[in-house]
Amino acid sequence: MGILSGNPKDEPLHYGEVFTVWSNLMVDYGMIAGFQTFYNHTGDVDLKKFIEDAIQVAREEIKILEKILKSNGVGLPLAPPERPVARVEDIPPGARFNDPEISAALSADIAAGLVACSQAMGISLREDIALMYGQFHLAKAQLGAKLLRMNKEKGWLVPPPLHLKYSKE
């Protein structure tokens, strides 16, 4: 029997998997802090709910990632402190992110997360790690679809130039 056969959880992680899981955990820690800040700045009730959902998805990822690193003897990255809840009215208007800006930043974060999950699936030799990133990818895709719908409904979507007619000239 080879070193990479049998129960995947008994197989060693390779350096790429360790770095990917560790980096993902560090990014999730930072995302939560950033999302909490966005939460304080938004006035839109639907966007607040979306941010709460996004934070919950990140917290679920963190539990899984921390467990993998700990069980493989890898130290965890430092996490920033939780952000306190603030009233949007207490943030001066010129210093406040507006809702379309927040939504655009969230959209970019989700898109980057989808790419990172795809890359992690591609480098994984352990099936459980690849499947875990497939589940993370699905959760991010669902968040992305929900946010895209919200962006369209609220008029926050800024599309690139649309190609409506094709000239044969």
Rank of each mutant, 00 (worst) to 15 (best):
S23P: 00
D128C: 05
T37H: 12
F136I: 08
V88S: 14
W156V: 06
D99M: 05
L114T: 12
M150H: 04
A139L: 04
C117H: 13
L138D: 06
P100Y: 02
Q119N: 10
L4S: 10
G113Y: 06
M121D: 03
W22V: 05
Y29C: 05
I32M: 06
E11V: 10
M31P: 00
D109C: 02
H137T: 06
G94L: 14
S107I: 01
E52Y: 10
R149V: 11
E60G: 04
E89H: 02
L4V: 08
G16D: 01
T37R: 10
E66K: 15
L25V: 13
P92M: 01
S167M: 05
A58G: 00
E17L: 02
G30H: 10
V74S: 04
I123V: 13
M150T: 06
A116M: 04
I110E: 02
R83S: 14
M121S: 05
P8C: 06
K165H: 14
M121L: 03
E60V: 08
E52R: 14
Q135T: 15
I51D: 07
A111W: 01
F136P: 03
D10I: 02
Q56T: 15
Y166K: 12
V158E: 12
A130T: 10
M150R: 01
N72I: 07
L114R: 12
I62T: 06
D46M: 04
L114W: 00
A141F: 02
S167L: 13
E169G: 03
I55W: 03
E153G: 03
S103D: 01
I91A: 02
E101F: 09
